[in-house]
Design a protein around this nucleic acid. Structure first.
Lengths: 150, 150
DNA sequence: CTTGAAAAGAACTGCCT
DNA sequence: AGGCAGTTCTTTTCAAG
């Protein structure tokens, strides 16, 4: 397990907010940019940083509807989990697949152009998935991502 | 609304997987790096790209437990929504706050070091939030993020 | 583990097609 | 809008404290 140095925590927090920040800005006078650079590299090698990605604005791109689906499977053998996951992977509108333990078996983040587009996805793609039992839905109104603990 | 050029779709898809990719790699022989560069800048100005962030490996950092909470409020006036959101914002373990319409009123992504740490957060932090009614939980087993439609 | 400098690479700009 | 070339900034590497 990685126990990040206090300086590393500052770096990780900064990169979480904006990954384009140069090492020089992250240093902010406290340290040399090369030192920060080395710390970032160490963190990446140690696996603390999983990936660097762009977050798209789906609404600006014409996908104004985001819905979270909670799925309960009707049949839960190992094969049915594999089948379900394989079939879900073929649906382009599904942005995230989470295998969970609790009220649901799977949670899906689904994006669509509008509600009627979402209905199409739900009827043709989701409800026809192998092994699907009950499906609950929540429509996203607003979302705030926060740094979380480090 | 932004209607991205086919080339832009390729670029956005690439940047979603790995935002460190240089324009040269994204071009991949098809185009000049400067052309890609300009397209990326246009996309950023148009608001297609919301932000660039690092995704941390919480497990590697000692936060092995991720739980999704579905929260139903007991009282749902405008004031209680504001109160709830303000109070939630003060909990460092809460990584995401989603205001939703459907089965729940709010969905929270909560990270903790282990299950007993999570119990502490749940009892001391979540259940004491103003206006909280019923709380459902799902423990994350595995997660797959996919590109989604563009 | 930090510094400072030098080398390599990527991003941005103007001009041309 | 794509290509080319020059400038600037960032990352990377390395010797040294």
């Amino acid at each position: 397990m990685i126990r990040p140095h206090p300086l590393d925590r500052v770096i990780l927090r900064g990169l979480q907010e904006d990954a384009t920040q140069s090492a020089r800005k992250l240093a902010a006078g406290r340290l040399n940019s090369a030192a920060i650079q080395r710390r970032i590299q160490k963190l990446e090698e140690a696996g603390a940083i999983r990936s660097r990605r762009v977050i798209l604005d789906r609404e600006a791109l014409g996908f104004g509807v985001t819905v979270f689906l909670g799925v309960k499977l009707a049949t839960k053998g190992r094969v049915s989990l594999d089948d379900f996951e394989r079939a879900v992977a073929a649906i382009p509108e599904v942005q995230t697949v989470q295998h969970v333990l609790g009220v649901y078996d799977y949670r899906l983040r689904v994006v669509a152009r509008d509600l009627s587009d979402f209905e199409r996805v739900l009827r043709r793609r989701i409800m026809t998935l192998p092994g699907v039992g009950q499906v609950d839905a929540n429509v996203l109104l607003s979302e705030e991502r926060r740094p979380g603990p480090i």
